[in-house]
Design a protein around this nucleic acid. Structure first.
Lengths: 140, 140
DNA sequence: GTCGATGCAAAATGTTTGCAAGACC
DNA sequence: GGTCTTGCAAACATTTTGCATCGAC
């Protein structure tokens, strides 16, 4: 099943219509690693109203078509894990570019243990690293 | 040196006045584990204007009197590491309470290695765990 | 045709700024 | 007294809501 097909199926499984707006938002998200709400609104300006973008993002998050991830003190949006793979992010504090970090089993296990120790049943975790990337280190 | 004294010294080292507003904000932060901007504004309503709260929080962050931490897709504020210790947070998805997690050397080392592998010089990291706390598990 | 989705306008919420008056050193 | 800080009001940015209309199934 392609991404497209999964997207269509996920909507239909949840009794949601496949509309032009939803196709377009999905298309945009497919073309980027991640995107801010502001960028998404800008890209859809003229074709989709802000309110509809917000409404659809809420829905997409609920049915796990997207994940919200934190970058700085804002969040960004990216396609959910069904459409990619579990990963985290590292952001350069100088150029503000961010890139994905592959899952690391050792790390994930350590986190589950930590939660367990405190009596929590862990369901989500997010790790955000900030530093200075290779390129920006050179420019010093 | 007490927290109070460190606070006074930090301001003075940075050529900033010790004002009534700043004392009050510091006092409130000393009394809680962490707090949202909205809660802080509510607690100071009548005595400090919103704009001054925001301005002081910006200053406090710059001189590391506070840290902003991410909880959900908002941020919260807490006294900086000089006033406590390095830690992370786990938040219950049901009751939205959050609690600190002590530093774990294994974990921190794993993170530095990860960053290194990608050529980054790591300077900050944040780990946020979400799950269901012991109490809320019982209520199921 | 029916119900869900959209656009538009307006409100609610969150944050920042300019400026004159007041507080700190 | 001079400079930094504050309050106030207004602007700006972000997100949500109500309602009439439109589109998907």
């Amino acid at each position: 099943m392609t991404s497209q097909e999964l997207f269509v199926k996920t909507l239909s499984d949840n009794h949601l219509n496949l509309t032009k707006s939803r196709r377009k938002i999905f298309q945009i998200l497919s073309d980027v690693e991640s995107i801010t709400m502001q960028e998404l609104i800008k890209k859809t300006k003229g074709s989709i109203d802000r309110a509809s973008v917000y409404r659809n993002i809420v829905i997409f998050e609920k049915i796990r078509i997207i994940d919200k991830i934190k970058i700085g003190f804002k969040y960004k949006i990216e396609l959910g894990e069904m459409y990619s793979y579990h990963h985290h992010h590292i952001t350069c504090m100088v150029c503000h570019q961010s890139q994905p970090i592959d899952e690391n089993t050792v790390l994930e296990k350590a986190l589950i243990q930590q939660a367990d120790k405190l009596g929590y049943r862990l369901s989500k975790h997010q790790i955000e690293l900030s530093g200075i990337c290779q390129n920006c280190q050179k420019l010093d």
